[in-house]
Design a binder for these strands. Sequence first.
DNA 1: TTAAAACTATGAACGTCATACACAGTACGC
DNA 2: GCGTACTGTGTATGACGTTCATAGTTTTAA
Lengths: 248, 248
Amino acid sequence: MAQERSLPSVVERMWGREPVTRRGPRPRLDLAKIAAAAIEIADAEGLAGVSMASVASRVGVAATALYRYVGSKEDLLTVMADSAAPLPPEPAGMPWRDYLALWTRAHRDVLLDHPWLLSVGRLVPPMGPRRLLWLDRALAALDGTGLDDGEKINVASALTGYALTEAALVHSVGGGDPQMEEAGITGAGDYGEVLAGVLDPETYPSLSAALRSGALGGAEGWVDDEDFSFGLDLLLDGVEALIRRRGA
Amino acid sequence: MAQERSLPSVVERMWGREPVTRRGPRPRLDLAKIAAAAIEIADAEGLAGVSMASVASRVGVAATALYRYVGSKEDLLTVMADSAAPLPPEPAGMPWRDYLALWTRAHRDVLLDHPWLLSVGRLVPPMGPRRLLWLDRALAALDGTGLDDGEKINVASALTGYALTEAALVHSVGGGDPQMEEAGITGAGDYGEVLAGVLDPETYPSLSAALRSGALGGAEGWVDDEDFSFGLDLLLDGVEALIRRRGA
DNA sequence: TTAAAACTATGAACGTCATACACAGTACGC
DNA sequence: GCGTACTGTGTATGACGTTCATAGTTTTAA
């Protein structure tokens, strides 16, 4: 009864719960090798290039051999989503605000390094060792602030969401998105320009005004670093206000 | 040269730029009908149930007929992602903070009503008429606050990200996620319990502590409404501080 | 030492799917 | 009415995920 609930079986493997019996031929692979190969392909060709066959051939086995390690392609994506994350930045005694800023930026950068992560659903909730390590570090940074654990988790959650949206924005509008490139949109400026051509100012009054004012129009568009910091500070200001309220 | 950049061609159609020639048989379909059918299927069976064949049969044509309206299945998903959004809530003269809270909540609810949206990449940047209407309303709510257009957009962006993460969390951990259900995880409590069983407290000190304290453990887990409001207020507090700084 | 048992990788086969293409039918413009 | 342009159909194809029986390999037990 306590054992009724468990981790999804692939996830168990990610935590080192590999099968115990040591009989028969030694496995030539392990999850890590498979994930690494899949990630390399995804980085190079996008998620579309990741097929059971392509991954298998990269690690030098037949396609069907992978099913000894993952139950399905969905499983493979789950594993990829966790192992694509590098180690989180080191706290090194920073104040919580500095660290969380660094953390969120690094989080976004991971997503930009592996844009296909944006199309893989399995990002929240984190279940694998890597992403949970990230979560742990964010919580640790908030130790001693007077926030309770639930609040800390909520803060981390909000920051994660922010990193995700910003990354998606930068990626699609900043180049690399196939559908956007088909249309010749290679920057926030293009995006705003194109949009301005379609929008009816009557039904979209505020948005049209924003476009006219060039808020998405120049080199400093929706997507540059200043804007990222801006939104991030927004969030951190909120956190800071909360901490003050808690009277740390 | 001004025309070199355009909207992705399906998106053009979403904006009513249907072809002009009126010769040959009258089309029996239009994008809206196709999208509606696809969305019904996705709501009922998930994204996996959406195939060109299944959508086509639901609208009563052969599979290949759809290619008169969308260039590819990717295109179909793009259309779905926009037309699944209902009209945004009406401002009705609310203060900006009340409206944005309502807006963000409604945003999250859309994602919970159509969980498959979480797996469709094409959410940001918004390109279709529906999602841009949502954006417009958020910007409108911030009129008169002294924020400039770029700042307004950043605020909307952060709120969108928050809605997205929260929805993903509620959905996967709160039921409906196939991989989670396979493992018997049907609530935040289960999630925390299962996690606690795998985590090594040495490498995940803060997270383990949070789990022990039951921050994800009870009926009031990661995912309930109180937590949503909490994170939302965090963000809105940040916005409010900014507005004060701007001296509205 | 040998035989059974447990496990691994393989190759062929199947069903599903997205998509391309040639064709047949239909409405409008002259 | 005739050509033209467009719509929907049927067939075909190639890629892909996945299943299964099989052959090969290592360990355990006799």
